[in-house]
Design a protein around this nucleic acid. Structure first.
Length: 571
RNA sequence: CGGGACGUGGCGCAGCCUGGUUAGCGCGCCUGCUUUGGGAGCAGGAAGUCGGCGGUUCGAAUCCGCCCGUCCCGACCA
C-alpha cells in the first residue's frame, strides 16, 4: 500500500483535548477523529487495526464453537420492559421514539434481543448447546466518556451469549470461553491478567474480567505474589482475622467532647489514638431504606460488597441533611449506639473492643464502645476493600495492587433472562426447562486503545505485530536516485506478493518526516533503502523497539522479514 | 450531577485583566525556487461570523448575563 493514497492525517503536536497516551497517539497517528464526546470516526489506519482485532476474535470464537450473528442496534422498548430493565437501566440507555411514537433504544447490550431470538427459534434439547456472538456497535450514554476509545459512548464490542440445557453445560461453556479469551488476548500481544470479578446479585464465582495491565487503567486489581489469585478490587475478599472477638472492655460507652472534630484523622489526633481504634459510621440510602455501615477507621468501605450483603441495587451515601435527620447529629458524629437503623459491620469491626465511635450528638464521640454489648448489629460481613498490606485470601501470601483496563468480561447469567423472557426448551422426556445462559463480552475498540497504553514511547505507538496496521514500513531515501526508486518499487511488490503488509512511504517528503511518521504509526518493522547501502546490496531493517539498524542483504530481506513477523505474531 | 479549566483559520497557542485602525504567532495547506539520512530554507498566497444569543458602550475577541460545547478530578459504570 502506498502512503500517499491513504488518508493518514498525522499531527505534530498533541491535541489539546487528549490526556491519555492512547487517546493522544490515536489522534496524532491519524487513526481516529472525534465527532462528538465519546463518539469517534475510525480512519483507514485505525480501521485496519480494528479489523485485525476482530479477525482474531472471530477465529477464536469460531474455534470455540460459537456462531456469528448480527443483531439490530435499534431495539423495541417492549423487550426491555419484559426483562424489567427498561425501568432500572437508567440514563445510560439511549431512548428515543420512532415516527409512530414507539419507544425504542439503541442497544447497549443484547441479552433481551438474543433471548427473544432463541425463545422463538430454539425449543428442543437437541438444539443445545448454542453459543451466538456478534461484533457490533454499541451505545451507552456514559455519564463521563473519557480517554478516547477507552471509555467511549459509542464503541465496538464482541458480545456472545450461550444457551445450555443445564448448569453443568453452562459451566463447560464458560470454561471454553475462558480459554478462548486467554488465546484472544495473548494473540493480540497484550500483557493481561484474569481476575475474579463481582458477579452482582447472581452470585457465585462465575465472573472473570480480563485486565490489560497499564498504569492508566481505571480498574484496580489485587494480585497475589505467591499463588495465582487475582481479583478486581471490588471483589477481592478480605480474609477474616484469626481468633475470637475480644471480650468487652470498660464500663460502657463514655461520651467525650470532641468539638468540631469530625474525620477519622482529626478524631485520632485529638484523642491521641490510631485510626484503627476508631470506627466510622457511614449512613447510606438504599432502595431498601437507609442503613448504617461500620468500617474501621483505617479501612476503606467497598460499596460493591455492601450492596451484595444488603441485597440492594442502589446505594448512595446520605446527604448532609439526611444524616442529621437519621442520627440527630451533624456529619462527623454518627455512631451505632442508639441508632435506629439496620447496622452492618465489617468483620474487622466485629472483632474490636473498646472502640471509638460518633455519639449521634454534635461535638461528641463515645469511648469504650463494644458492639456485642452496646449495639444491635443486623449483620457482619466483609465490607471493606482489600489493601496491599492484607494477606492473600487464598494462600496468605503477599498482595500487590495493579491498575488494569477491562477488555473482556465473562459472566454466568443463569436463568435471569430466560425466566424473565420465558425462554424454555423441552428435554428428552418432553418437560419444559429454562435455558441456562452465559454472556461474554470483549471491548474490541478498547483493545486498540489498551494496546497503545501498553506499547508506546516518546516517538509514538509501538504496536504488537498482530495488531499493527502494517507489519512493515518501507522508506526510500534519495528521491532522485533511480536505483533507489527501482529497488523500492520492486521490494514493495515482492513483499506484497509474499503476503507481508507493507506501507511504502512514497511521499515527496524529507527523510526525517518519514522516519517520524513511521515511528508514530507504530509499525513494528521498518525497512530503509538508501543509496549507500543499496550500492552494497543491503537494506536497513529496524525493529520499532530497537535502538539500532540491522543491515540485511537484499536477497535475504523477504525471508528475514517473514521470519521476524512469524516470531512476533504469536498464534 | 458536584468541583476545576477551556472555547480565537485545519492543529497548537498569544491577544482579553486595562474595550479603540487592516485580530497576531508557530505548525499545516496552495504556488514557485532551492534543499533531501530524524519533523528544511526563501518568496508569494488562501483560509477566522474570535462557540452561540442577548446586554452595556459612540465602539466588544476584550466588560456583564444566559446558553451550548469540550477536557480534567469526583460521583457513576450491564
Amino acid at each position: 500500500m502506498l502512503f500517499s493514497r491513504l488518508l493518514i492525517p498525522t499531527l505534530k503536536e498533541n491535541p489539546a483535548e487528549a490526556e491519555a497516551v492512547s487517546h493522544r497517539l490515536l489522534l496524532r497517528a491519524g487513526m481516529i477523529r472525534k465527532l462528538a464526546s465519546g463518539i469517534y470516526n475510525y480512519l483507514p489506519l485505525g480501521l485496519r487495526v480494528l479489523r485485525k482485532v476482530e479477525r482474531i476474535v472471530r477465529q477464536e470464537m469460531n474455534r470455540a464453537g460459537a456462531q456469528e450473528v448480527l443483531m439490530p442496534a435499534v431495539q423495541p422498548a417492549e423487550l426491555w420492559q419484559e426483562s424489567g430493565r427498561w425501568q432500572i437501566y437508567g440514563k445510560e440507555l439511549l431512548r428515543f421514539q420512532d415516527r409512530h411514537g414507539r419507544e425504542c433504544c439503541f442497544g447497549p447490550t443484547h441479552e433481551e434481543v438474543i433471548t427473544d431470538l432463541v425463545r422463538k427459534e430454539v425449543h428442543s434439547y437437541r438444539q443445545l448447546p448454542l453459543n451466538l456472538y456478534q461484533i457490533q456497535v454499541k451505545f451507552r450514554d456514559e455519564i463521563r466518556p473519557r480517554f478516547g476509545l477507552i471509555r467511549g459512548r459509542e464503541f465496538i464490542m464482541k458480545d456472545a451469549y450461550s444457551f445450555d440445557a443445564d448448569e453443568a453445560g453452562a459451566e463447560a461453556c464458560y470454561r471454553r470461553m475462558y480459554d478462548a479469551y486467554n488465546r484472544i488476548f495473548s494473540r493480540c500481544g497484550l500483557t493481561f491478567k484474569v481476575v475474579e470479578a463481582d458477579s452482582g446479585p447472581i452470585g457465585g464465582s462465575f465472573s472473570h474480567e480480563f485486565m490489560v495491565l497499564a498504569d492508566t487503567g481505571e480498574d484496580l486489581l489485587a494480585s497475589c505474589t505467591s499463588c495465582d489469585y487475582a481479583a478486581n478490587l471490588e471483589k477481592a475478599e478480605v480474609a477474616p482475622a484469626p481468633g475470637e472477638p475480644a471480650p468487652p472492655v470498660g464500663n460502657g460507652p463514655e461520651p467525650v467532647p470532641t468539638p468540631n472534630v469530625r474525620t477519622v484523622e482529626e478524631v485520632a489526633a485529638f484523642l491521641k489514638l490510631m485510626p484503627a481504634d476508631i470506627v466510622k459510621t457511614l449512613i447510606y440510602e438504599t432502595d431498601d431504606g437507609p442503613a448504617a455501615v461500620l468500617i474501621r477507621g483505617d479501612h476503606e468501605v467497598n460499596e460493591v460488597k455492601v450492596k451484595n450483603l444488603l441485597g440492594v441495587t442502589d446505594l448512595i451515601l446520605a446527604g448532609l441533611i439526611r444524616v442529621q435527620e437519621l442520627t440527630g447529629a451533624e456529619v462527623g458524629f454518627a455512631g451505632p449506639v442508639g441508632l435506629k437503623l439496620p447496622i452492618y459491620a465489617d468483620q474487622a469491626v466485629a472483632r474490636m473492643n473498646a472502640m471509638v465511635t460518633g455519639a449521634n450528638r454534635d461535638n461528641y464521640h463515645l469511648l469504650q464502645v463494644n458492639l456485642n454489648r452496646d449495639v444491635k448489629i443486623t449483620a457482619v460481613g466483609d465490607l471493606r476493600s482489600i489493601t496491599a498490606h492484607d494477606p492473600c485470601p487464598r494462600c496468605g501470601g503477599g498482595l500487590t495492587l495493579l491498575h488494569g483496563i477491562e477488555v473482556g468480561h465473562i459472566f454466568k447469567l443463569g436463568l435471569k433472562y430466560s425466566k424473565a423472557l420465558k425462554a424454555t426448551y423441552l428435554d428428552a422426556d418432553g418437560k419444559d426447562h429454562y435455558l441456562y445462559m452465559g454472556c461474554y463480552g470483549i471491548g474490541v475498540s478498547r483493545i486498540m486503545a489498551a494496546a497503545i497504553e501498553q506499547g508506546n514511547d516518546a516517538n509514538g505507538i509501538i504496536f504488537p505485530m498482530a495488531l499493527a496496521p502494517f507489519q512493515v514500513g518501507l522508506i526510500p531515501i534519495g528521491h532522485n536516485d533511480p536505483a533507489v526508486s527501482e529497488c523500492v518499487e520492486g521490494l514493495h511488490a515482492e513483499l506484497e506478493a509474499a503476503g507481508i503488509e507493507v506501507l511504502l512511504d512514497d511521499r515527496d517528503e524529507r527523510p526525517g518526516v518519514k522516519f517520524k511518521d513511521c515511528d508514530l504509526l507504530g509499525l513494528p518493522l521498518r525497512v530503509v533503502v538508501g543509496a549507500k547501502a543499496l550500492a552494497q546490496g543491503m537494506a536497513e531493517v529496524r525493529h520499532r523497539r530497537a535502538p539500532d539498524n540491522l543491515m540485511v542483504p537484499l536477497p535475504e530481506l523477504i525471508a528475514y522479514l517473514k521470519d521476524q513477523i512469524a516470531q512476533e505474531q504469536n498464534g
